[in-house]
Write a protein that binds this DNA or RNA. Structure first.
Length: 214
DNA sequence: CACTAGATTTTCT
DNA sequence: GAAAATCTAGTGG
């Protein structure tokens, strides 16, 4: 199986972050390794983070050594380390100088599932890439990839993927933050089983009705 | 099924 | 020194 996939161009990322986030759903995230093998998955859940107007963003309080790539060129990977043991993958958006990025929260495994299982140390396909820390493990994405250019096809990139069926986009507030909860900037493919959590969903999705005793 | 606690270390105040 | 764009195992219903 050969890769005839082409990275999305920089112009795709050089736009309003919310639009980029939504447009990334249904695209294919591809990770290539030095031995020419690769893994890939369909992006099914993302979150948008911006700058001054977004208190939940790493860039809210200005430039620091950690967040500097958010201020740089669009289409570049922003990978950070958190909670003492996990990495998260973002793609920088908006023109250079404007801090913003899209967090990839979950993908649906498509190619190289065996390899993902190896990196994750788990066998359940459903539990391989359904979270930001999990998918970086499955794709072997670490801080070393921070700052790499995702408009090139050699290490990490996103391409169009026409095989995914038509879908509806779900919206909610973002997960795992304490401020900026007023912004509905989490987007996911509705009814896709690889979306990370069932918390942080739009209201009215309660499935249980406990206290129904007379 | 739902919820809680514990892990573990970088980063910025 | 505290918090962090998280995950897992464990408990209780």
């Amino acid at each position: 199986m050969s890769i005839d996939l082409k990275p999305l161009p920089r112009s795709f990322y050089e736009r309003y972050t919310i639009d980029v986030a939504k447009d990334l759903l249904g695209k294919l995230l591809v990770r290539r390794f030095p031995d020419n093998s690769f893994v890939a998955g369909v992006i099914v859940e993302v979150e948008a983070y911006r700058g001054e107007d977004d208190p939940a963003s790493h860039a809210y309080r200005g430039l620091t050594p950690r967040n500097r790539v958010m201020f740089g060129k669009p289409g570049v990977a922003y990978v950070y380390f958190t909670y003492g043991m996990y990495h998260c993958l973002n793609i920088v958006t908006e023109p250079e100088g404007v801090p913003a990025a899209v967090l990839i929260r979950a993908v649906e495994p498509v190619y190289g599932i065996e390899k993902m299982m190896k990196f994750r140390g788990k066998k359940d396909a459903r539990n391989l890439t359904n979270g930001p820390g999990k998918l970086t493990m499955a794709f072997n994405i670490t801080k070393e990839l921070n700052g790499i250019d995702m408009t090139k096809d050699d290490i990490l990139f996103v391409s169009n993927y026409d095989k995914y069926p038509k879908f509806e986009i779900g919206v909610s507030s973002r997960i795992g933050i304490k401020v900026g909860l007023d912004k509905p900037w989490r987007f996911y493919i509705k009814d896709n089983p690889y979306v990370s959590k069932l918390r942080g969903r739009p209201m009215g999705t309660r499935s249980k009705n406990k206290s129904a005793k007379p």
